[in-house]
């Protein structure tokens, strides 16, 4: 199903299942860092693949990105992006160490991948239960670099089947005081070939 043909109801339904999935993921994150995690209303964007880096705040913005493929009954990619400062704040909460600037140690990388794994698993589990489908995340991959470079692998995968990308995005933030807020962006990018699975099942739920 081409991305552009989605109706408002279908888009709303995608937002809603994403909201439910992200709710579970946020609960998991909140337990890990011992802080409240707030969610923004999800956004569904259909855009030219070339415009995706702009949506992420610019191709040269430094980001820590964790990407996973969605495996099982439906295919797609999950991207979890943290601005660099947020990634370090998250590590401070998780590992209890002091902010050590911009490099990531082996332990840091491993911890962040684990966060990615837990969030994606919680998200996909919730989605899978709702849709009665098996959805599992692949081993997480991490890159700490320019946003464009971090995400272009995912875009390459998508570009095999078209020139458009559909992103279901949920922004979240944690931490009480403003200077120490942890911000992250969670993206689901369904493969065009399996978008039908999401949409048909969601359509079924709605009537």
């Amino acid at each position: 199903m081409p991305f552009r043909e989605l109706s408002h109801i279908q888009l709303d339904a995608l937002k809603e299942i994403s909201n439910i999935g992200m709710g579970h993921a946020a609960t998991a994150l909140s337990q890990m860092i011992g802080q409240t995690v707030r969610l923004r209303v999800p956004q569904v964007t259909v855009t030219e693949i070339s415009q995706v880096p702009e949506h992420l705040g610019g191709a040269e913005q430094l980001m820590v990105g964790i990407t996973m493929q969605v495996l099982g009954d439906a295919r797609g990619s999950i991207m979890l992006l943290f601005p660099q400062e947020s990634a370090h704040r998250l590590l401070c909460s998780l590992l209890g160490h002091q902010d050590r600037g911009h490099t990531l140690s082996e332990v840091d990388i491993s911890a962040l991948k684990e966060v990615g794994n837990i969030l994606a698993s919680a998200y996909l589990n919730a989605l899978g239960n709702l849709l009665k489908k098996v959805l599992i995340p692949s081993v997480p991959l991490l890159a700490n670099d320019m946003a464009g470079a971090v995400v272009d692998n995912v875009l390459i995968e998508l570009s095999r089947s078209g020139d458009l990308a559909m992103m279901v995005e949920t922004d979240f933030s944690g931490g009480q005081n403003r200077e120490k807020t942890i911000r992250g962006h969670f993206f689901l990018l369904p493969d065009p070939a399996t978008l039908d699975i999401f949409v048909n099942l969601v359509g079924g739920l709605h009537g």
């Binding site: 880096p53 191709a59 320019m146 470079a149 692998n153």
Partner: peptide, 23 residues
């Protein structure tokens, strides 16, 4: 020059491609 784009020009123009990973 954004992803999936090719562009030509003449000096003194400077063309720029940002945030290349596997691209």
């Amino acid at each position: 020059v954004s992803i999936a784009q090719t562009r030509i020009g003449r000096g003194p123009e400077v063309l720029r491609a940002c945030g290349l990973g596997s691209c």
